[in-house]
């Protein structure tokens, strides 16, 4: 083994010995907030995105409209260039769909007659939804137009706010990680002050003195990152047990997906880099203080 490699191995092992579990855990808890938030937001975005993609308009017809008039209206809709597809939903079919929802069949039975109107489900081409919905409302025979994407858009906007909040949180907690590392290294330098002073007197280079502290910063940060991922995984598993109950009742298989390998790796890498930064700031400042004395 070359001397250079041996020096690095030595510094790395020294860092592992000095690694405080508690410090890594503190960093892990702090990082689990943005990492977990990211996983949740990604999950919600997947849901919102699915709706936002097929921007749909439901066009409900007047109850007294004849089926022939409805068909004529259908051809008008198909001729509109802003419309990607048109699906006619006769009132009988709508009633059947409704009856399929658990608990609704009794309600419908109690009504005696079908209260639902005929309807068209129209999907618009991108970015034409608002104008299209307004125009469709003016057509003869149309009772009511509902742009289904409105709430999806709100969800997307909400996710946007969530994302910005997440960035702020990440930045703040990243700063916290740097500060925690800074302080860990400061304390470590203080406890090893004598060793550092003696080592410098008898021929240790600055690089030799600094190396273990850089390793400690990186290892502690990365350990915190791994702890964060473990916390997020456990949290999501716990959450998904409840989500499963809710999603199943909607006939959905939705679950919050765990961070993918790339994201998980990014968290550990990012935490390690911030640890390095904290160590760098601390070492630069506190070893200079020892030099000066």
């Amino acid at each position: 083994m070359s001397a250079w490699l041996r020096l690095h191995r030595q510094a790395f092992l020294a860092a592992l010995r000095r690694l405080g579990t508690l410090n890594a855990l503190v960093i892990g808890v702090a990082l689990s907030l943005p990492a977990g938030g990211y996983a949740l937001l990604e999950g919600l975005r997947a849901v919102a995105g699915r709706f936002a993609l097929d921007a749909q308009v439901s066009v409900f017809l007047r109850a007294d409209l004849k089926r022939a008039d409805a068909e004529a209206l259908g051809s008008t809709l198909r001729a509109d260039r802003r419309i990607a597809s048109v699906r006619f939903v006769p009132r009988e079919e709508a009633l059947k769909e409704l009856a399929a929802v658990q608990g609704m069949s009794e309600v419908i039975g109690a009504l005696g007659q079908n209260p639902l109107p005929d309807a068209f489900v129209v999907s618009s081409k991108p970015n034409t939804l608002e104008a299209l919905a307004a125009d469709l409302g003016k057509l003869p025979g149309v009772a009511h137009v509902q742009a289904d994407a409105a709430w999806a858009r709100r969800l997307v906007a909400l996710a946007g706010i969530g994302r910005v909040a997440l960035w702020l949180l990440s930045a703040l907690l990243g700063l916290g990680l740097v500060a925690v590392t800074f302080n860990t290294i400061r304390l470590q330098i203080l406890t090893q002050r004598e060793e550092i002073e003696v080592s410098k007197l008898i021929g240790a280079t600055d690089a030799f003195i600094r190396r273990p502290f850089y390793y400690l910063g990186v290892v502690q940060g990365a350990a915190g990152g791994i702890a964060a991922i473990a916390i997020v995984a456990a949290g999501l598993a716990l959450l998904n047990r409840e989500v499963a109950v809710l999603a199943d009742s909607y006939g959905s298989t939705f679950r919050f997906a765990f961070l993918d390998a790339g994201d998980a790796f990014a968290v550990v890498l990012f935490a390690g880099l911030l640890g390095w930064l904290g160590a760098h700031l601390s070492v630069t400042r506190h070893l200079r203080a020892i030099d000066a004395s």
Binding site: M1, S2, A3, W4, R6, L7, Q10, E195, V198, S199, I202, G203, A204, T205, F208
Partner: peptide
């Protein structure tokens, strides 16, 4: 052993 650590001896 301390001074030997600096120079990366086996």
């Amino acid at each position: 052993m301390l001074p030997l650590a600096f120079s990366g001896h086996a």
